[in-house]
Each structure stands twice: as C-alpha cells, then as structure tokens.
C-alpha cells in the first residue's frame, strides 16, 4: 500500500490552469450568479408589467396584500387566505407524493419482477398514464371515479396527482435500480440474501443517491402541477388566489404573490436537496 501511494504521488503536479475551470464557467455555475439571473429576470417582468399596468391605468394596491397572508384582529393573530391556501397546497403535495412514491415503487418492482402478469399490468398502467393529459385525468378522477367511489374534491385531487406521478416516479426508481451493476445482485444472492434483502441492504442504498436528483425534479413538478386541481375547486393556493381576485379585482398583485409563493417553496426544496446530496456524496 505504501509503495502504491508513493508511485501515485511521484508524477509531476498538473499545471494549475488545468485544475481550475475557466473563470467564466465558474462564474456561471456559482449560486450568486443564479440568484443574480433570477433577480434580473424578475425585475424585467416586474418592470414590464408595471409599465403595462401604468398604461392601462391599473390601480396598484400592494398594501392590501399582506392581510391575505396574515392579520391581527381582535381575536389575535390569524393566517390569511393565501397562507391557508399554501398550507392546503403543501398538504395536497405531501400526501399525493407519498401515494406516488409508494405506488411508484410497487409499479417499479412489478416491472422488475419475474411475474408476467405484474409486468403487463405495470406497463399498461404506465402507457395509459403517460399518454393522457393531466387535466383530463383530473376530470376523470373527479367526475367519473369520484361519484363511483364517493370521493370528495380533495381526495379525488390527491389520488389523481398521486397516480399520475406514480408513473413518472416508477420510471426513476426503476432506472436507479437497473443502474446498479448486475454483480451486486449476484454477490447479494450468493451470500443467501432473498430478493427483498438484496433490495433493502444492497441495491436501494446504492441506487438512492442516483434517484435523488430526478426525484427532486418530480417533487417540484408535482408542486407546480398541483395548481391544476383548482379546476375542481380544491381550496389550494391557486383556487384561493382566483377566488380572491374575483372578490377584490387585484389580479396583478395576487397572481404575482401566488407565483412568488410557489417560487419560494420550490427554491427552498431545491436548496434542501442540494445540501442533502452533498451529504450523501460525502458519505458514499
């Protein structure tokens, strides 16, 4: 071992400019730069809409927005409508993601199993879900399956998002599992592990870091498309926003606020996952 490390250390050090990426690339990849780009884009949108609104003679009422986030009344501190909408959106996303993950795992394992029927079932379900617009699926769940099974709006919305995302997530899980070298399976089985043990102790722990980034992508996608259940009037952020607008006519302020809330949530998730990924790759 000592001899080995010595012979590795011996070659001449690489030229310094080779080790550092070029200045421009380093700049464009830095967090600060991303934030700057975001800020510039937001400012541009803000300015454009401000100018447009001014031409329309729009009456800005930003001072009215905070009361829809929180307010102090005689009863004390209260959450505003938009905040409650956000809470509902989060609830919707968390439950539908849980369903999507479990169902996705089942579909993935079925596809990877030796069961011919299981494979067929999984493939049929996948093809169906992949080739139907989410909006149509929402209607299907609410107007067709809802009455049959007695689901309310919220349940139909949650199940619809859960099933739709299960299809996407199952592909990620399957790809992660398939990416684990065949030799790992063989080694696990050769020490007498069952298929379940091999998944649990050998395959999943290795596939997990590979799955994390695309799974984050799906979570963010899920949060964004959770807005679609506003078409069946589930009282989540987008629905609340629309309702508020029809009461107050503050469409610019409220849509901006709603957009910013979504942005804040998805950004926060990205940041958390990035930190998590760093930890995972440190441990591996």
């Amino acid at each position: 071992m000592a001899g080995l490390s010595k012979s590795l250390a011996a070659p001449q050090p690489p030229a310094p400019e080779l080790r550092r990426p070029p200045f421009l690339r380093r700049l464009t990849r830095s967090t600060g730069f991303s934030i700057l780009v975001y800020a510039v884009v937001l400012a541009a949108i803000g300015y454009a809409s401000y100018a447009g609104a001014a031409r329309m003679g729009y009456n800005w009422q930003w001072y009215n927005i905070p009361r829809y986030l929180y307010r102090f009344t005689d009863d004390g501190f209260q959450l505003g409508e938009l905040t409650l909408g956000l809470v509902m959106s989060i609830y919707l996303c968390v439950t539908s993601f849980a369903i999507a993950f479990v169902l996705g795992l089942v579909i993935a394992l079925l596809r990877l199993s030796d069961l011919i029927i299981g494979k067929w079932l999984a493939v049929c379900l996948l093809e169906f879900l992949r080739n139907i617009p989410l909006l149509v699926l929402v209607y299907l769940f609410y107007y067709v399956l809802g009455p049959i099974f007695g689901w309310d709006r919220l349940t139909a919305g949650i199940l619809c998002l859960g099933v739709f995302y299960a299809a996407l997530i199952s592909e990620i899980l399957r790809a992660g599992i398939l990416a684990t070298p065949k030799g790992q399976w063989e080694a696990a089985r050769s020490i007498g592990m069952t298929r379940g043990q091999a998944y649990r102790y050998i395959i999943i722990p290795q596939a997990w870091p590979l799955m994390l980034p695309p799974l984050t992508g799906e979570v963010i996608q899920l949060i964004k498309s959770s807005a679609i259940v506003s078409v069946i009037a589930v009282a989540e952020l987008t629905t609340i926003g629309r309702n508020l607008i029809s009461d107050t006519y503050m469409s610019f302020e409220i849509w901006f606020t709603v957009a910013l809330i979504y942005l804040a949530v998805t950004l926060a998730i990205s940041l958390v996952v990035t930190a998590l990924e760093k930890r995972v790759s440190h441990n591996a």
Partner: peptide
C-alpha cells in the same frame, strides 16, 4: 456455497467490515 467473482463484487457503500458482517447479520 460461497462464491468469489472475477470482478470482486464487493458492496461499495459498506466498509470492509460491514461487507463481511452483512451476510451473517441479515441472513
């Protein structure tokens, strides 16, 4: 019946000791 493979097939996410212990522990 143990098997030793051409490509070793050690479990990369486990330490050497854990590689040796996982079979006895779990199986």
């Amino acid at each position: 019946v143990g098997m030793v493979f051409q490509q070793f097939n050690l479990f990369p996410h486990l330490t050497v000791l854990e590689n040796l212990m996982i079979g006895p522990l779990k199986v």
